[in-house]
C-alpha cells in the first residue's frame, strides 16, 4: 500500500499540476491583496474628501466605545453572560489601544482568513478539482489504466492509494494557500497582525446567533481554525471529485461537471433558499467559516454541525460510489 501511494504521489508531482495551481494562487492572492490595499486607501481618502476633515482618530472612537462598554458593564442588572461578552470586547479593544493597532488596518493574518472565507465556496474547491479531476479519468483517457489494472493488485487498493495521495496533496495545498496568502499580503500591507485578538465562537440558538459564548483568541490561532475548516471542505471536494473522476472518461468532463455543480449550487442557494432540499446540497454547506465569524445563515436553521455532517455524508457516499464503480467497471479503452 505504501508503495502504491508513493507511486500515485509521484505521478501527481510529475504532472506538475501543483505548479499550475500555485501559479493561479499567486495571481489571485496578489490581485486580491492589491485590491484590498487599494480599497482601504480609497476609503480613507473618500472619507476625508466627503467630510472635509481628517479621519477621526480611531483611538478616540475606541476609547469612547471602551468607556461605553465599561459603564454598561457596571450596570448591575445586566445578566452575567452579557457582561462576559462585554469583557471580551473590552479585552479586544484594550489590546488594540495598548499595541497602537488600528483594528481596521489590513494585516497579513487578517487577509489570509479573509481570503479563505472568500475562496472557500469557489476558488479553493476549484484548485482541489484541478488537482483531483484527472486522477482516474486521466488514466482512462491516456489509456494507462490498462497497465495499472493488470498488476497483481486488487482494484480497490489502487483507488485507495490514489485517495491517500490526493489526501496528502490536498492537505499540503491548503497549507500552501495559507502560507502564500499570508506572505504575499504581507508584501502589500507590511503588517503581520499575528497576535491580534479575534472574537469567535458564536453559537446558534433557536435561530438567533448568540454572542454570549464567544471567546477571544489570537489571530494566528484563528487562522488555524479557519484553515482547518477549509481543509475539511477541501477533503470533501476531493472525495467528490474522485468519484466524478471514476464515473467519467476524461478529466475535462470531470472538471466541467464539478464546476457546473459548484456554480449551479450557488445559484440554487440564491434563488431557492426556501426550498428545503437546498440545504442538503454540498455546495450550500461549503461556507463553514461563516459559522465562526458569526455572519448571517444562508438558510435558516443551518448550523456548523449540520453542515459538517451533510458534507461528511456527501464525502462518504462519493467514496462508496467511487470504489464500487471503480471495482466493477469494465476497462474498454
Amino acid at each position: 500500500m505504501t508503495a502504491l501511494t508513493r507511486n500515485e504521489l509521484l505521478k501527481m508531482l510529475l504532472k506538475k499540476k501543483m505548479l499550475l495551481i500555485l501559479f493561479f494562487l499567486l495571481i489571485f492572492v496578489s490581485l486580491f491583496s492589491y485590491g484590498q490595499q487599494y480599497a482601504y486607501e480609497r476609503n480613507l481618502e473618500q472619507f476625508e474628501a466627503e467630510t472635509g476633515e481628517e479621519l477621526p482618530d480611531w483611538r478616540d472612537l475606541a476609547d469612547r466605545r471602551l468607556d461605553d462598554l465599561e459603564s454598561r458593564r457596571a450596570n448591575e442588572s445586566i445578566p452575567e453572560n452579557v457582561r462576559t461578552s462585554f469583557d471580551r470586547e473590552i479585552q479586544q479593544l484594550t489590546y488594540f489601544i495598548e499595541n497602537d493597532i488600528n483594528p481596521i488596518t489590513p494585516t497579513a493574518f487578517s487577509f489570509n482568513t479573509e481570503f479563505a472565507e472568500q475562496g472557500i465556496v469557489l476558488f479553493i474547491p476549484l484548485l482541489v478539482i484541478i488537482l483531483a479531476a484527472d486522477l482516474v479519468s486521466g488514466e482512462f483517457s491516456n489509456r494507462t489504466v490498462k497497465i495499472l489494472l493488470t498488476r497483481a493488485v486488487p482494484r480497490w487498493k489502487i483507488l485507495l492509494s490514489k485517495f491517500l495521495a490526493l489526501f496528502m496533496m490536498t492537505t499540503i495545498l491548503v497549507f500552501l494557500v495559507a502560507v502564500l496568502s499570508t506572505l504575499v499580503s504581507f508584501l502589500f500591507f507590511g503588517e503581520w497582525g499575528i497576535n491580534e485578538p479575534v472574537l469567535t465562537g458564536f453559537t446558534l440558538s433557536e435561530g438567533t446567533l448568540m454572542s454570549d459564548s464567544t471567546i477571544l483568541i489570537s489571530r494566528w490561532r484563528y487562522t488555524i481554525l479557519i484553515y482547518s475548516l477549509v481543509w475539511f471542505v477541501s477533503i470533501v471536494i476531493a472525495s467528490i471529485t474522485l468519484m466524478v473522476s471514476v464515473l467519467v472518461d476524461s478529466s475535462s468532463s470531470a472538471i466541467g461537471i464539478l464546476m457546473a455543480a459548484l456554480i449551479g449550487g450557488q445559484f440554487l442557494q440564491f434563488f431557492l433558499a426556501d426550498w428545503e432540499l437546498v440545504q442538503y446540497f454540498f455546495v450550500t454547506n461549503l461556507d463553514l467559516p461563516r459559522y465562526l465569524t458569526g455572519s448571517f445563515q444562508p438558510v435558516e436553521g443551518m448550523t456548523l454541525t449540520f453542515s459538517i455532517l451533510t458534507l461528511a455524508v456527501w464525502a462518504v457516499l462519493s467514496l462508496i460510489i467511487g470504489f464500487v464503480q471503480f471495482s466493477r467497471r469494465d476497462v474498454l479503452v
Binding site: L14, N142, R143
Partner: peptide
C-alpha cells in the same frame, strides 16, 4: 501483458 498498444505515462 500489452493490451491494444503500449500505453505508458508520457510525462515520465
Amino acid at each position: 501483458c500489452i493490451i491494444e498498444g503500449p500505453d505508458l505515462y508520457g510525462y515520465m
